[in-house]
């Protein structure tokens, strides 16, 4: 899942990005409203964390613009404005959630998880496909009763595939949603490597896959488990 942090306080944005990366999200930073608009134009984000006090664009206006541009983008407002009026305005401008500063990082993570659940057919906090179980809050994956040891990116890829189980996901899309801007240097080979190690961890066979199917020239698909 890829998150854009729109926040003019660089030290805070940096810490947020780091914390989100530690928790298995891909995160980019935009320090200005203009920058945020550019990044949203070129990249696919699942969620935006938005500060209302930006130097160039009014946060509420930006929220409205983002909502109009990307109807499916989840927007979480993270701001110093604590008044009821601001909260109501923010949510009415199209934001999905509102969190006032100073906040606890744990709460932010929990709210992000809750927001990401919205697109799922089921609102269960634990993702389940066949005998695979993924818990975003503790960042653990179980295959049956066996706990899998996944690295950050593998977890990220698997989470995205599980959220869209049964759908064909192109390589580009997977890259968009699992990698942040700074990490994109190695490109596709890197994705193959990660899929390969993920399969290995899942005891999956690329020729006769039980979990991750490769559709040459198209992308990947996580099989909706019958097992």
């Amino acid at each position: 899942m890829r998150i854009l942090i729109i926040e003019d306080e660089f030290d805070l944005a940096k810490a947020l990005a780091k914390g989100l990366k530690n928790n298995g999200y891909a995160a980019d930073i935009a320090l200005l409203g203009e920058e945020a608009l550019q990044k949203i134009e070129f990249n696919e984000y699942d969620l935006a964390v938005l500060d209302l006090n930006l130097p160039d664009i009014d946060g509420l206006e930006l929220c409205k613009t983002l909502r109009a541009w990307r109807p499916k983008l989840l927007i979480l407002i993270l701001t110093c404005r604590k008044r009821l009026k601001d909260k109501v305005m923010g949510l009415d401008m199209g934001a999905d959630d509102y969190l006032a500063k100073p906040f606890h990082f744990q709460e932010l993570l929990a709210r992000i998880r809750a927001l990401l659940r919205r697109d799922l057919p089921t609102k269960e906090p634990i993702l389940q496909v066949g005998d695979l179980k993924l818990d975003p809050s503790s960042r653990t994956v179980f295959k049956g009763n066996r706990r899998l040891e996944l690295r950050n990116k593998e977890f990220c890829i698997l989470e995205y595939l599980m959220r869209r189980a049964g759908e064909v996901i192109s390589q580009e899309e997977l890259l968009e949603h699992a990698w942040g801007e700074e990490e994109l240097d190695f490109f596709t080979a890197n994705l193959r490597v990660h899929i390969h190690s993920l399969r290995k961890e899942l005891n999956d066979d690329a020729q006769n896959p039980k979990y991750i199917e490769t559709l040459p020239g198209v992308g990947y698909r996580l099989k909706r488990g019958e097992n």
């Binding site: 306080e9 030290d11 805070l12 947020l16 914390g19 404005r81 100073p102 906040f103 990082f105 744990q106």
Partner: peptide
């Protein structure tokens, strides 16, 4: 007072987030 609150909360939020992110890891 709302401006004061805003100006004070920003560095506070920076401090707390930095602390929590590092401590959580």
């Amino acid at each position: 007072s709302s401006s004061v609150a805003h100006e004070l909360r920003t560095p506070l939020a920076t401090m707390r987030t930095n602390l929590e992110v590092v401590l959580q890891n």
